[in-house]
Design a protein around this nucleic acid. Structure first.
Length: 428
RNA sequence: GCCGCUGUAGCUUAGUUGGUAGAGCACCCGGCUGUUAACCGGGAGGUCACCGGUUCGAGCCCGGUCAGCGGCGCCA
């Protein structure tokens, strides 16, 4: 039986068997207290000398943290036990006495990364992995309800997706391949068949960033939709974010408590979000004392300062054309700005989405590439998509790990990824 | 890549003016009839990141190397 099932009155006075790992152990004379952990929760077991065999009592005394164990016992309600219920052991079977477990109460974030393969067992990581699962599930159900098809783009690619970003190079049968840094261009190809498409795939960036919100490998949720404008894309993203936040609140109350998240902060994520033109955000930044030119990109510091007093996400739309990659569509009424948007998460978390309309006219795309000193031949198949019945369309990319960091109220992206990869961490 | 900081036991750390390396947790032994990352007594555990220098003497001062952290830039 799983521990989660006995943490209520339904099994009081009945004899049950649980299996798991020793989470805490204490002894006091003829009593041994073992807190047992499984995937569903923790429960205290009392082992009393004389009730179990002498061999079993010795085994209980010897049970170190993480010892794998099976316990049969009578379930009772007990105020003094950590989770309100406890088992009075009648039988004990140890599978393996654990060696000295390296994690104790004194631990640094750095050490926990070094022994991440063991730290995954912690209540914190277990809670985070459950919340991550909820997040991915809710993205998929939202997209399905909204008529999007999930597709699988390649991870090995032959060329650049975005000019400028750093690619990981991999040997590929005598030629060079790269790990994808965005699936956007591939989604645009899928779009001509399935119209509304999305993927949740890894993206890889060899940027030597060292910040609390960058990884070299991250979960990238990207979508592309035919016939959709920048404003319509924002509407959809707004619905999506409200949906996933609500879903997390409904499904993971216990896990949010384990990571000590103030759930009122999640409750506050309601429509409508704030929507500001780029210039307005520059103005907000200046009011906060930031030195900003009329055309300056928003760095992490700026985003933190701008978003820390907000309770809901902020759309920033129509950035200056010169700040954005070539595929963004300039506003036909105002070519100095593109029809794009970022979503900044509140409480200082900053950018979680970048998206907008793509240039769908072939000649315009080529002209734009030339003005950025890019060779259209390097993007041959991407340009080719504009040759056969091109249509207006929009898309976005969302950093799943960033969103989870924000929703869970954590201070570093490393905390929401089971095995985070950064410039300086490849193991475990 | 740039700037700044840090490196002492398995973990978290103290270490004064340069003069015998100390603690808490974890571990081992013993004690305790209800513990809450218990308590009490005892024990074991150190290449003070590495290399070189100054000095009678270096964890401490100087130079270099490596590693990590924080920030910037870049981005999701």
């Amino acid at each position: 039986m799983h521990i989660g099932e006995i943490l209520n009155d339904s099994h009081v006075d009945s004899v049950v068997t649980v299996r798991g790992w020793v989470y805490r152990s204490r002894e006091s004379g003829r009593l041994v207290f073992l807190v047992i952990r499984d995937s569903t929760g923790i429960v205290q077991v009392v082992v009393e000398k004389g009730v179990v065999t002498p061999e079993e009592f010795e085994a209980a005394k010897r049970s170190t943290i993480e010892t794998s164990i099976e316990v049969e016992g009578k379930c009772s309600k007990e105020q003094k036990a950590v989770t309100g219920y406890e088992l009075h052991a009648t039988k004990i079977k140890v599978y393996q006495f654990a060696e000295n477990f390296p994690i104790t109460k004194d631990k640094s974030d750095e050490f926990l990364l070094d022994i991440r393969h063991l730290w995954l067992r912690s209540r914190e990581m277990t809670a985070i992995m459950k919340m991550r699962e909820t997040l991915l599930d809710s993205i998929r159900s939202f997209m399905k309800e909204n008529g999007y098809h999930e597709v699988q783009p390649p991870m090995f690619v032959g060329g650049m997706v975005e000019g400028g970003s750093t690619l990981f190079e991999v040997p590929y049968f005598g030629e060079k391949a790269y790990l994808t840094q965005s699936s956007q261009f591939y989604l645009e190809a899928f779009m001509f068949s399935l119209e509304n498409v999305y993927t949740i795939s890894p993206s890889f960036r060899a940027e030597k960033s060292r910040t609390r919100r960058h990884l070299t490998e991250y979960s990238h949720y990207e979508a592309e939709a035919a016939w959709v404008s920048n404003q319509q894309m924002m509407d959809m993203e707004e619905d999506m974010i409200v949906y996933i936040a609500q879903h997390l609140l409904d499904s993971n109350r216990e896990e949010l408590e384990i990571v000590k998240r103030d759930v009122n902060k999640i409750r506050a994520i309601e429509k409508p979000f704030y929507r500001y033109r780029y210039e307005k955000v520059i103005e907000i930044g200046r009011q906060k004392g930031l030195q900003l030119d009329d055309v300056s990109d928003l760095g992490e510091k700026e985003e933190r300062a701008i978003t820390e007093d907000f309770d809901k996400p902020i759309f920033v739309y129509n950035f200056p054309t010169q700040l954005k990659p070539f595929y963004h569509r300039p506003d036909p009424e105002d070519p100095l700005h593109v029809l794009n948007h970022d979503v900044l998460a509140p409480e200082g978390y900053g950018e979680v989405i970048g998206g907008g309309e793509r240039i769908w006219n072939k000649d315009e795309l080529i002209a734009r590439m030339r003005s950025e000193n890019l060779n259209p031949e390097d993007y041959q198949w991407y340009v080719d998509l504009r040759s056969y019945g091109s249509v207006p369309h929009s898309g976005f990319g969302l950093g799943v790990d960033r969103v989870l960091t924000w929703l869970a109220g954590l201070d570093h992206i490393n905390k929401v990824v089971p095995f985070p990869r950064s410039m300086r961490r490849l193991r475990p």
